[in-house]
Write a protein that binds this DNA or RNA. Structure first.
Length: 514
DNA sequence: GAAGCTC
């Protein structure tokens, strides 16, 4: 696959087109702005064609290039009276708070043409991905990513709203195909996410001739040892921290030509107890040889602790944030199910999830530990319930196989640890079960809000319907659940009798799944 | 009592 893709030409999105070239804005350092789309109209047209992409763009008519001038005055106008009722009809219709740095004005990209992408890349979007228009986060973030001086960006957006496209397109459009060196690097918290992102990249970039490589561990014994490996010449590298660190350590990953560094699930990648040290090492390795590398941080969640750290890593960058109350927990319907004991939990899986699961699509059952994943799997399999499970002790080959079979729809129920809590994008997943609620290690009465939100986000991809069933057994479970409700300001409905078919049916109907 | 990440 050779093709010439000229170095990206991200021009033309530099300034807001309509509306008074701001005079005030220029004097302001940080302009804070709220880009608001109106409450949505019924959406579904796109949901049906979205298929296995979470990134499907909305298909509704759009206003001619509205300006998201990052200027308070402009936006005030935009916000208050400009109807935009006919604007993007998307799941993430809500406020995104944008804080820009410096004087660059950005307009929103109402179409992909607005971004001045290469024809090969546009073809990838339309033909390869079957996209129509940028989603909201795409329309706002892509101009920021592509417009010189290529400022760093921290971007928060809802689960299933199309974040992947933002950074994949960012990477693809900045690569010089003639230069046979790594120019874009994307670091992900799990093997599964790295693979998924690379697949999106290859699909979207299939007409560009851009080369890419996956940096995740190989099966032990196969492949050449790292020290014998030739230096990476692929133009885009996507992988996990360990392998990327290893390649860097052996001098196989040149960083001189790197133009763009992406952290997917960035809050976790920069969290203490997450991958902070690995991430900082990579950043330092790049800074040593390279002064002009754009850094992009994407996630659906940034808690306050991480947020303050993030702004120290990425200073002088643009920022997009969403209020926690608006983080899309409303597209999936949440329920709590009181289970008197573990047997009741298993019964609910058997008699309700397996019973109704097929009718409503696929299901992911989240458990807290590897051993409970294996135990639950075995208990179900023993009685002939067909499912698979995935967690960190399963070897890589089998992990890949389990994911592949699930993606092909061969399996309907997948038991998982939090290995799949973040980012895993499978549009047929309409049901999420929290067999165990996520809590902070060493603080069992403190919910892990981020993990909870990410797990829920596996259902209802790109605005589809979805339901989440939280199994509550102990007093502590109720404490966790109450805190979760308060934190997100959401009412979680109760299923009073775990044995009642009727109550589950009603719940699924209320969620729009039956 | 944890999940994920190189060898």
């Amino acid at each position: 696959m050779e093709n010439e893709t000229p170095e990206s030409k991200p021009t033309n999105v530099t300034k807001s087109t309509e509306s008074t070239e701001s005079t005030e804005a220029e004097s302001t350092k940080n302009n804070s702005v709220e880009a608001t789309a109106k409450p949505s109209e019924p959406r579904r047209a796109w949901a049906d064609e979205a298929d296995d992409d979470d990134e499907l763009a909305a298909s509704s008519p759009s206003p001619a290039s509205s300006s998201l001038g990052l200027d308070l005055d402009e936006l005030a106008i935009d916000d208050s009276k400009k109807k935009k009722a006919d604007s993007l009809d998307e799941p993430e219709d809500s406020n995104i708070k944008a804080v820009t740095s410096g004087h660059t004005l950005y307009s929103t990209a109402m179409t992909f043409e607005d971004l001045n992408l290469s024809t090969e890349l546009l073809k990838g979007l339309y033909v390869g991905m079957n996209f129509k228009r940028p989603s909201k986060i795409q329309s706002i973030s892509l101009p920021m990513i592509l417009t010189p001086p290529h400022k760093d960006l921290v971007a928060q957006a809802h689960n299933g709203s199309g974040k992947t496209t933002c950074f994949v397109l960012g990477m693809l459009s900045r690569v010089d195909v003639k230069l046979r060196e790594p120019q874009a690097l994307c670091i992900c918290p799990t093997r599964e996410l790295a693979i998924q992102n690379l697949e999106v990249l290859m699909k979207m970039g299939q007409f560009t001739g851009i080369t890419s490589v996956l940096a995740v561990p190989e099966k032990p014994g196969v492949g050449v040892p790292t020290h014998k490996m030739p230096p990476v010449t692929a133009q885009i590298v996507i992988g996990t921290p360990g392998t990327i660190g290893k390649w860097l350590g052996h001098g196989k990953l040149g960083m001189r030509a790197l133009k763009i560094l992406v952290f997917d699930e960035a809050d976790h990648m920069l969290a203490e107890g997450g991958f902070r040290d690995d991430s900082l090492k990579v950043i330092k390795a790049i800074e040593k040889v390279n002064k002009h590398c754009q850094v992009l941080l994407f996630s659906a969640t940034f808690n306050d602790v991480v947020k303050s750290f993030v702004s120290r890593v990425v200073r002088d960058g643009n920022q997009l944030f969403v209020k926690k109350e608006e983080l899309s927990l409303d597209v999936v319907k949440q329920y709590k199910v009181h289970c008197p004991d573990e047997l009741a939990k298993i019964s609910v899986i058997r008699d309700k999830i397996f019973e109704y699961g097929d009718k409503v699509g696929q299901t992911i059952v989240f458990v807290r530990t590897r051993t409970s994943a294996a135990a639950l799997h075995e208990s179900l399999a023993k009685d002939g319930y067909v499912c698979t499970s995935i967690h960190g002790t399963i070897d890589h080959e089998n992990r890949d196989k389990v994911v592949k079979e699930f993606r092909e729809g061969l399996t309907k129920v997948l038991i998982s640890t939090d290995i799949l809590a973040r980012g895993f994008d499978q549009s047929q997943v309409n049901l999420v079960v929290n067999y165990d609620l996520p809590f902070i290690h060493d603080h069992r009465a403190e919910p892990d809000y981020e993990v909870y939100l990410h797990r829920c986000g596996r259902a209802g991809r790109f605005g589809r319907k979805g339901a989440v069933f939280n199994f509550l057994r102990t007093d502590n479970d109720y404490v966790l659940m109450d805190k979760i409700q308060r934190h997100f300001g959401h009412q979680v409905h109760e299923i009073h009798d775990w044995r009642s078919d009727q109550q589950f049916e009603d719940a699924l109907k209320a969620a729009g799944l039956l």
